[in-house]
Structures are given as structure tokens and as C-alpha cells.
Computed example of a mutant assay.
Amino acid sequence: MKIGSKSVIKKAYFTWPHQVSIGENCICEDHVNFRYDGIWRPGPSIVIEDNVYIGSNSEFNICDHINIGKDVLIASGCKFIDHNHGYHRIDQKIRLQPPEVEAIKIEDDVWLGTNVVVLKGVTIGYGAIVAAGSVVTTSIPSMEIWGGIPAKKISSRNNEEFNNHMRLSGTF
């Protein structure tokens, strides 16, 4: 397992520690579950960049990959699940069907409220905010505020802040 300098990891659970990489200056509160849900393979598959806060009782249930960008705030009880059970074949039991798997990406400066669930294939853009208790089933553009089940756009943040970020990063 890789843990960057000045990071604090309280009581946490790991199925495959080599699948987890945590950057510098991160805080991981109690009872966070880092679950790589698959057979052994080289890692890491759970990548958390610098200055990330992860609240207690959060869960990473990953078969493929998740990348958490810099300066992300993840409140208590959030869940990240990059796979579903296969269910399309009616002639085969659901538990025997191969899973549907797609990576998750959380870009920089995102804030996820308490008990947010992020499902497979989702990208949450730079500076986005997701309201407490939301279930994110589709990607969220940068600088938007979403909430609900399933999560939908509620509002936008200041576009000037986003444009400054894009200029400084060389994107435009």
C-alpha cells in the first residue's frame, strides 16, 4: 500500500492493500472500507490524490478502477461501486453472470455530501458538488451542483472560478 507523507489513516479495512494508493496530506477517518472486489492483480486500482478528506464509514467497492482527484471532500458514509451484477440473461442465475464494470473518476475540488452513492462509469467534474443522500448514476459536468435519487442538476457554481482553473491548467 502506498501512503503519502503527512497523511493520516485511522482504523480502516483493506482486502488487497497493494490496490490502494493514497496521496500526501490526506485524512481518512475511522471505519473506511477499501475493498478491491476481484482476484489478485497488480495495482493500484483505488487511487486517491493529495489533500483528500474521506469521512468515516465510507466504502470503496471496486472491481476495475477509481481515481479521486486533489482537494476532494468526501463526507461520512459515501459509497463508490464500479460494478453491477450481470442480469441480462434470463436463462442464467444473476449470481452466475459476469459483472458489468466501468471505472469511476472524481476530478479535483469536488465535494460529496454525507451518504452519497457513486455508481459505475460516473465521472464527477472539477468543482462539482453533490448533495447529501444522492445517488449518482450519470456523469456530472464541472462546476455543477447535483442532488436527489437519481441525482439531477440543481444549480451551477461561478463559471469565472472554473474558467480561471482551466486557463491555469492550460486546457484553454
Rank of each mutant, 00 (worst) to 15 (best):
T114F: 10
L73F: 10
V118H: 02
P98N: 12
K93R: 14
I66A: 09
A75M: 02
V122F: 03
S56K: 13
I104Y: 04
T114W: 07
K70Q: 14
A103I: 02
Y126T: 10
G77V: 01
I81F: 00
H88E: 15
I104L: 05
Y87G: 07
I90V: 10
T114G: 02
V130S: 06
L119G: 06
V110R: 06
T123H: 06
I129P: 00
K79V: 02
I129V: 15
V117I: 12
L119H: 08
S56T: 08
G133T: 06
G121D: 11
L96T: 11
G133I: 09
V130P: 02
V117C: 09
V117R: 00
P99C: 09
L96K: 09
K93M: 11
W111G: 01
C63S: 14
I66S: 05
L96G: 09
K105D: 04
W111R: 03
G133K: 07
Y126P: 00
T114A: 13
I129T: 14
I129N: 01
H83I: 07
Y126S: 00
K93A: 15
R89K: 15
I94N: 01
F60L: 09
C78R: 05
V118Y: 01
H88N: 13
G113E: 10
V118S: 06
I68K: 04
D71G: 07
A103C: 08
D71N: 15
P98F: 05
I81C: 13
D108N: 15
A103E: 14
A131L: 10
I68R: 06
I66M: 08
N61A: 09
A128N: 08
G113Q: 08
A132W: 00
N115R: 14
G125N: 08
E107Q: 14
P141Q: 13
L112S: 05
V117E: 03
C78S: 10
E107D: 13
D71C: 13
E59R: 13
V110H: 04
L96W: 12
I106R: 02
K79C: 02
G86P: 11
D91S: 13
R89V: 02
Y87H: 14
I94G: 00
G133H: 10
I124L: 12
N84L: 11
G77L: 02
R95A: 12
V110Q: 07
V117D: 02
H88K: 15
I74N: 01
C78Q: 08
T123K: 11
N61R: 12
G125C: 04
G125T: 05
H88P: 03
V116G: 01
Q97N: 09
L73C: 05
L112A: 09
A128Q: 09
D82H: 05
T123G: 03
G127L: 04
V135H: 05
K70Y: 12
T138Y: 11
I140W: 02
V110E: 04
I90S: 12
T123Q: 09
V122C: 09
I90P: 08
I104E: 07
K70T: 11
I140G: 05
N57V: 00
N67C: 10
K105W: 07
Q97L: 04
Y87P: 01
G125F: 01
V101G: 06
D64T: 08
L96D: 15
P141V: 08
F60P: 09
I81A: 11
I124F: 09
P98Y: 08
T138S: 13
I129F: 01
